[in-house]
Design a protein around this nucleic acid. Structure first.
Length: 787
RNA sequence: GCGCCAGUGGCGGAAUGGUAGACGCGCUGGUCUUAGGAACCAGUGGGCAACCGUGGGGGUUCGAGUCCCUCCUGGCGCACCA
């Protein structure tokens, strides 16, 4: 039996589902139900991404406990999901905050550690002052925390990391084989991994026994290097400057108004140029990233915009080493190398090749590949997350626990006052006697980033009750997920982490699976018109009424200004509540509308007309089947076969909006021809095709018509009926449509031309001219070319 | 700035290089109604017409919304990545 693993991204249990969830899960449900009808062994589970900060914030705000708050939310959201008529296997349900999930994550952590994929180091990390926790690089957007929007600070802390960089090359290359992923997501991941090929060059420090390693993609411009710039966090800054001075420089840098304005501080050390008998100045500069390469660059102002700007400001010499006009500086394009004894006259790639070989020979450099991707910082200074199974002794050493010492459970009795990490403040939990050494020890109080939880939940779903993380055979048999459906906002974070996890687990446990998600489908947002008063107050759409072409607010009769359709958000008051819609329009209309007006990967604008149209469609179908049976017309069977064929094709391609069009086309035909099928076998076929989309309605109708709950299998298509025997053949002259004629398929070209030439419209076109060529695309089109 | 995607009626959107606008919404007219914002029926790209029409301009082709080049516009992502 063919397996089909259909998965939608599991939700965070905030307490209420929103329209975005509805769309996501209806799309997945249609797929899953279709595959079941086709006879596949379908896996379609649901769970809860249940650790995370909102629970802690809610605990403080409402004086409840994160666990209680979360579990209550799960219950109510589960009820809401059940109202959507989703065919989910609730036996497989999991919640990442439950010990039967996270204790196995602790096992994985131990295995990662043993495999060298988890390690601890002092690191300059992103600190979110509002959430009081560290964030991964991926979670910092424009210098702000992804969740809080607070400006992120830099701090040095001892942190746990996962070695995702070990897989940088594979994560990049394997994207090419993910044929069923959107190009857009792959591009985003490629950019994020950010591979650069170049060279690493050693710069000796004059008068010191120390050196710098500098990565560059342009070793061909080495003769134009006129300065060195270091990040303020570079090792050598610490070596040569006092803390006080460093702090002053940091202050100087952060005082810059415009973030892009370049600032530098001249150090009193110099570097030797690796090829020339000269020394060049060393700056500390605000524009040098400390987390790329070693946090040091050589500046070649003539051929780099940033270096040029800096050099002009600090009056650093600018030496041209690529042929160009002076007014073209900085010249960053390819060109012929000049002023470079070893490289003169060469083109860029030749020069790069030659100089790297020279560096190798002299042992002052090497070719080098650099990635933007950093290792994944997974420590979070929060209570509501998976505890890291590590203890610390009083001498500062630590021990990663054995699997036999698991689980490390979160204590329930914590003091959540919003200040700092509740685990750190919980002495009873924290302080233990190590059973191996009998020494006093302290538990790790950081918990794991919740993106760790979601990096392997699709594996745990295969057997959520197993007494180890997963079963190898099951993983090999049932992964990858065949269709993974969710929002594009996870393009980098969740999807990259999961890919890394799959590869890491593959290598640790000898799995045969390389990628977790075979096909990725990213559904579009749901948007809704926004409305404002003249005082910029957002108001709810339902408050607005229209009179003589103008919009007014219901209770005050103020003029209302209509804004663009935007993503539903509470702050803009353009939210539609699923519960309300289900109540007013019913589940069938709701499901129809979720796929009606736009292709699933594009935005769907919520409109009253749209949902009303879906309601009408549902009603029409219901009424249709209740009418008394009539005879079929000649082409009725053909229409039904076409319907089956099209629905199947369109579900497979995620062209669900076209499925709705297919439904209209069929019922328009049946009603126009007054063909009523009632409890016929043909009705069964039609209902089965409708079942994935509107299962509730179909179940009721099936009961009513056939007194049975047993919806059969997906109907076999009678291909013979699909073939059109007669066609409307378009006739072109000079490639332009002139007329069409109705004819049988398989006509003889000579014969049909005879009758075509008799047509007035064709005669008029041809008149006295000579036919020089006739293009007959058999059964498709005829094109007559005249002189 | 770089990358990706997209530009088709009043709107959402259909079209393996082969009849552009399927299907829906809206609109117009009609039927039934005390009434209708319900339901049903008919029509609906522009133009009186010949014809013209898929963001603009080139090209490939018998034939281009579709392929190629170029420009414009919009959306998304990345962005001092050396």
């Amino acid at each position: 039996m063919q397996k089909s693993y259909i998965l939608e991204m599991f939700p965070y249990p905030s307490g209420n589902i929103h329209m975005g969830h509805v769309r996501n899960y209806v799309i997945g449900d249609i797929c899953a139900r279709y595959h079941k009808l086709k006879g596949d062994e379908v896996i379609h589970p649901m769970g809860w991404d249940a650790f995370g900060l909102p629970a802690e914030n809610a605990a403080i705000q409402f004086n409840t406990h994160p666990k209680d708050w979360t579990l209550t939310n799960i219950e109510s959201m589960k009820n809401q999901l059940k109202k959507l008529g989703l065919d989910l296997d609730w036996e497989k349900e999991l919640a990442t905050c439950k010990e039967d999930y996270y204790q196995y994550q602790q096992e994985l952590f131990i295995d990662f550690y043993k495999a060298g994929l988890a390690y601890k180091k002092d690191a300059l990390v992103n600190w979110d002052p509002e959430d009081q926790t560290v964030l991964a690089n991926e979670q910092v957007i424009d210098g702000k925390g992804w969740r809080t929007g607070a400006t992120v600070e830099k701090k040095v802390l001892s942190q746990w990391f996962f070695k995702i960089t070990k897989y940088a090359e594979e994560l990049l290359n394997a994207l090419d084989e993910l044929e069923l992923w959107p190009e857009k997501v792959k591009t985003m991941q490629r950019n994020w991994i950010g591979k650069s090929v170049g060279a690493e060059i050693k710069f000796k420090i004059a008068g010191e026994d120390d050196q710098l390693n500098i990565f560059t993609t342009r070793p061909d411009t080495i003769y134009g290097a006129t300065f060195i710039a270091l990040s303020v966090n570079h090792r050598l800054v610490n070596k040569f400057l006092k803390n006080k001075e460093i702090n002053e420089i940091k202050k100087l840098f952060s005082a810059v108004d415009n973030e892009k304005e370049k600032k530098g501080y001249l150090m009193n050390i110099k570097c030797k140029h690796p090829l020339l008998e000269k020394e060049i100045p060393v700056f500390i500069a605000n524009f040098v990233l400390d987390n790329y390469g070693e946090g040091a660059i050589f500046g070649c102002p003539a051929h780099d915009e940033r270096d040029y700007e800096f050099a002009v400001k600090y009056k650093i010499p600018i030496i041209k080493v690529i042929e160009c006009d002076d007014n073209e500086l900085p010249f960053t394009h390819d060109g012929i190398v000049i002023n470079s004894p070893l490289l003169n006259g060469l083109k860029k790639t030749e020069a790069i090749h030659k100089i790297i070989n020279y560096f190798k020979e002299k042992k002052i450099g090497n070719e080098s590949i650099n990635y933007k991707l950093r290792d994944w910082g997974v420590s979070r200074q929060r209570y509501w997350g998976c505890p890291i199974p590590v203890i610390y002794y009083e001498d500062g050493t630590f021990r990663v626990l054995d699997k036999s010492e698991l689980p490390i459970l979160l204590p329930y009795d914590v003091d959540l006052n919003g200040k700092g990490n509740a685990l750190l403040n919980h002495d009873n939990w924290r302080k233990i006697v190590c059973p191996k050494t009998n020494k006093i020890a302290y538990r790790e109080t950081d918990t794991l980033d919740t993106f760790v939880d979601s990096s392997w939940y699709y594996i745990r779903f295969l057997n959520n009750k197993l007494d180890r993380p997963f079963d190898t055979k099951q993983v090999n048999d049932y992964l990858p997920v065949d269709k993974y459906i969710g929002g594009i906002e996870h393009a980098i974070l969740h999807l990259l982490y999961s890919r890394f996890f799959m590869k890491a687990l593959r290598d640790i446990y000898n799995l045969k699976i390389n990628e977790p998600f075979k096909q990725l489908f990213t559904q579009g947002m749901i948007t809704h018109k926004t409305y404002k008063t003249k005082n910029d107050e957002w108001i709810m759409p339902r408050e607005v009424y229209q009179k003589e072409g103008k919009l007014y607010r219901g209770k005050t009769n103020e003029i209302v200004i209509e804004g663009p359709s935007e993503k539903m958000s509470k702050s803009k008051k353009n939210v539609i509540e699923p519960d309300e819609i289900l109540e007013n329009y019913g589940i069938n209309a709701t499901r129809f509308f979720m796929i009606s007006d736009s292709p699933p990967d594009r935005e769907l604008e919520w409109t009253d007309e749209g949902i009303q149209g879906s309601k009408n469609l549902a009603r029409r179908i219901n009424e249709y089947f209740k009418k008394n049976r009539t005879d079929m017309k000649l082409d009725t069977n053909k229409m039904i076969e076409k319907f089956i064929f099209n629905i199947e094709k369109n579900i497979m391609n995620f062209s669900l909006n076209k499925c709705v069009a297919d439904v209209y086309t069929l019922f328009n035909y049946l009603e126009k021809e007054k063909v009523y099928l009632h409890n016929s076998d043909e009705s069964k076929k039609i209902l089965i095709c409708l079942y994935p989309i509107v299962p509730n309605m179909v179940s009721d109708l099936y009961m009513f018509l056939f007194n049975s709950k047993n919806i059969g299998n997906w109907p076999e298509i009678n291909k013979e009926l699909l073939v059109e025997k007669s066609i409307n053949l378009p006739i072109q002259v000079q490639g332009k449509l002139v007329t069409t004629i109705n004819t049988k398929k398989g006509y003889k070209e000579k014969e049909i031309l005879k009758s075509i030439y008799k047509l007035d419209k064709i005669k008029n076109k041809i008149q006295n001219k000579e036919v020089i060529r006739v293009i007959n695309v058999q059964d498709k089109i005829i094109n007559i070319i005249i002189n």
